[in-house]
Design a protein around this nucleic acid. Structure first.
Length: 562
RNA sequence: CGGGGCGUAGCGUAGUCCGGUUAUCGCGCCUGCUUUGGGAGCAGGAGGUCGCAAGUUCGAAUCUUGCCGCCCCGACCA
């Protein structure tokens, strides 16, 4: 492709609307343009990457027996009502105004209804159906460029099975296929076991990458691969040890001391000598929650212990329940249920609130002074704590979800009557699995992981073009002729070339742009080296340069692309 | 949907608080000449409903009100 005739609108400066690296670089490299919030056009260069990713996905999906479909994006609303998902998706589902249609946010319903009509016997199973198509979701807040959009390209696969063993097998096939896909793309990912959320079903894994642009916070161990959403993550961490001797409870005047930090400063003590109190309302009843030092209450874990609704108590409720305001609440003489984090188990010589404004108590012994206290894991893990599996240091960071696989079960097949007859002639619902990959996210995540201050660094798998050929001074006949003939030769060898043949662009301009666009191999044709019958070859990833005889260029390039 | 920020030429911006000639500058774009190994130089030029609408005023990019759009935080999110 000749740049002189191509639409590759690069930008020298960062557009105002872009904040995250991948978004900035995709805009600057002329790969995407926004049409509206969360809605992007892919320009020729960007679309080439999308096609390469799609092709890798196809190869791996076909390899596990997947069959590619093309499903409608426009769906009758009725079918979504049958599974209760018009309500479940709520405002996220796009509704068509002048007909009873919705825009498909995913395709479980269409798969199940297709199966209903045509899968009749266990002999027809298993099946793996997939699609690579645009999905529509009315996200309340699109963000980070292409990472959360209102319309996005998604590979969705569905397994149809007669038995749970079959489902397990299909799930494992996808697990491996996903690892192959992300490996081929050159993405550094990790896998998190997760709950399947609104989709229903049991058993799921998320494929994620570490990124500041991420929307989930996870704890990850690079050594053993332990990974969990922060809301459920656990770690090995020291408890407050019980001192040999319990001191007497003593009341201390602590005017205007509210936080644990202020208390430590005021009393010259360590935060691990403090028990922080939080009051929650669980199913209408107050519960005092104690945490060691500055540990934060993990409300998801709290919710898990109580099952029902849990919320922090309002300020007025605090006074009513404890007689004190936040900052002066504590367990001693507290009337009601008290639960504490495991780190506080049987601890003594603690400082905590006195349930009297501007007073704290010291010398608290939870065994002696607080009756009926229950202990649970209630805290958030933080970076540097020990992995529960291998004792290595855990890292806590935000992450982007690239892919998600899960066992759906029979929710959709039952709702839509997608059944089959088993070997004994019994009618049973088809057992389904669902497996998604955000195609644009693969592209964005790759860029998040592979860039430097000059631009994108493509690998040879995803790159829009394998070679970026530059004729430096195209007014020089020698340079122009040599560049042209190299271009023709590369093309005849089926090598993808982006050819900067622009006559009026400066050498420096071409270099900068080549680094921004990031093709793995740059071939530079300039008078200097041409006099020795050589051209220069530069590797984008390392910056390594080498002079190559023109006669040997093709074979050298082919060698590098292997 | 709540909180915050922003909206001036294709991109990045000054001016807005405190209203007053022809709306600033850089990049990009067009023409010519020069230049050609790290986003060129000189000269000339084009390009604007100052997000939209209403209002206040002799006069509005600037003040008021409403609306729209974009970004960030939160809520939400296979």
């Amino acid at each position: 492709m000749k740049l002189s005739k191509s639409f590759v609108p690069t930008l020298k400066e960062t557009p105002n609307e872009a904040v995250v690296t991948s978004h900035i670089l995709m805009l600057r490299a002329g790969m995407i343009r926004m049409l509206s919030a969360g809605i992007y056009s892919f320009l020729p260069l960007g679309y080439r990457v999308i096609r390469k990713i799609s092709e890798i996905i196809r190869e791996e999906m076909n390899a596990i027996g997947g069959q590619e479909f093309h499903f409608p994006g426009l769906n009758p609303k009725e079918i979504w009502e049958q599974t209760g998902r018009v309500e479940a998706f709520g405002d996220t589902l796009f509704h068509v105004k002048n007909r009873e249609y919705v825009l498909a946010p995913t395709h479980e319903e269409i798969v199940a209804s297709t199966a209903k009509n045509h899968i009749q016997s266990y002999k027809d199973l298993p099946q793996i159906w997939y699609q690579i198509q645009t999905k529509y979701r009315n996200e309340t807040r699109p963000r980070s460029g292409v990472i959360r959009g209102r319309q996005f390209l998604m590979k969705d696969a569905y397994t149809l099975d007669a038995t749970t063993e079959g489902l397990d097998k299909g799930y494992m096939l996808h697990d491996q296929a996903y690892r192959n896909i992300f490996d081929k793309c050159g993405i550094d990912y990790f896998v998190v076991g997760a709950s399947s959320g609104a989709m229903g079903g049991a058993g799921s894994e998320e494929f994620m990458i570490k990124s500041d642009a991420g929307e989930d916070t996870v704890a990850h161990c690079t050594k053993c691969g332990y990974a969990a959403n922060l809301e459920v993550a656990i770690s090995k961490i020291d408890s407050k040890l019980r001192d040999d001797k319990s001191e007497e409870v003593k009341e201390i005047s602590t005017p205007n001391v509210k936080s644990i930090d202020e208390l430590c400063e005021f009393l010259k003590i360590d935060e691990t000598q403090c028990a922080k109190s939080r009051v929650y309302i669980a199913d209408e009843k107050p519960v005092l929650v104690l945490m060691l030092g500055n540990d934060e209450v993990n409300e998801v874990k709290l919710q898990k212990e109580f099952g029902g609704n849990v919320r922090p108590a309002h300020p007025e409720e605090l006074i009513e329940i404890t007689g004190a305001e936040a900052g002066s609440i504590g367990p001693v003489k507290y009337q009601g249920r008290i639960i504490a984090d495991n780190r506080l188990k049987d601890a003594n010589n603690l400082y905590s609130g006195a349930n009297k404004n501007d007073f704290h108590l010291g010398g608290i012994d939870l065994k002696r002074d607080v009756k009926g206290i229950e202990y649970f894991d209630l805290r958030f893990v933080s970076s540097g704590e020990r992995c529960p599996n291998c004792n290595n240091k855990l890292d806590v960071f935000t992450a982007i979800e690239l892919g998600h696989i899960f066992k759906l079960g029979t929710k959709y097949s039952e709702a839509l009557g997608a059944t089959f007859l088993d070997e004994d002639g019994n009618e049973k619902p088809i057992i389904m699995g669902s497996y998604g990959i955000g195609v644009e996210r693969v592209m964005a995540c790759y860029i998040e992981q592979h860039n430097d201050e000059n631009g994108i660094i493509w690998n040879k798998t995803l790159t829009p073009f394998q070679v970026h050929l530059m004729g430096l001074n195209m007014k020089n006949e020698d340079v122009a002729n040599t560049s042209d003939s190299i271009y023709e030769k590369l093309i005849s060898e089926n090598i993808e070339v982006l050819y900067d043949d622009r006559i009026d662009a400066q050498a420096g301009y071409k270099f900068k742009e080549a680094d921004l666009l990031g093709m793995p191999i740059q071939v530079i044709v300039g008078n200097k080296k041409l006099n020795e019958n050589k051209v220069e070859l530069k590797l984008r990833a390392t910056g390594e340069r080498m002079d190559v005889d023109i006669d040997e260029l093709i074979s050298k390039v082919q060698e590098l692309l292997k």
